[in-house]
């Protein structure tokens, strides 16, 4: 009876660690799958959205510089 107790503990350990690892491995696989799926079909929009803002800024800066040089020349 008493020897069973430690054996019981090891059984708990096997089942517990097994479940934890299986769960995490499934989680890792589905995580990688989910990430590649999302990045392929729903790439984040704000990367492309950020570019025009930058462009606009450049245009404005160019316009300002142009105006200043024109003003200085004139």
């Amino acid at each position: 009876m008493e020897a069973n107790l430690i054996l019981e503990g090891f059984k708990f350990m096997g089942l517990g660690m097994g479940t934890v690892f299986i769960f995490l491995i499934i989680m890792i696989i589905s995580m990688s799958f989910m990430s590649s799926f999302i990045n392929k079909f729903f790439p984040e929009a704000h990367v492309s959205a950020a570019a025009p803002v930058k462009k606009n800024n450049n245009k404005i800066i160019a316009a300002v510089i142009g105006a200043i040089t024109q003003h200085k020349q004139g």
């Binding site: 107790l5 430690i6 503990g9 708990f12 350990m13 660690m17 989680m27 890792i28 995580m31 990430s35």
Partner: peptide, 24 residues
């Protein structure tokens, strides 16, 4: 970096190792 999740799993060995210790 999904594979680092395995480290979080391994650390649970602390739980079950202690369980055996307490039972012993």
């Amino acid at each position: 970096n999904p594979k680092t999740a395995l480290l979080g799993g391994a650390a649970q060995f602390g739980i079950f190792g202690t369980l055996v210790g307490a039972v012993a």
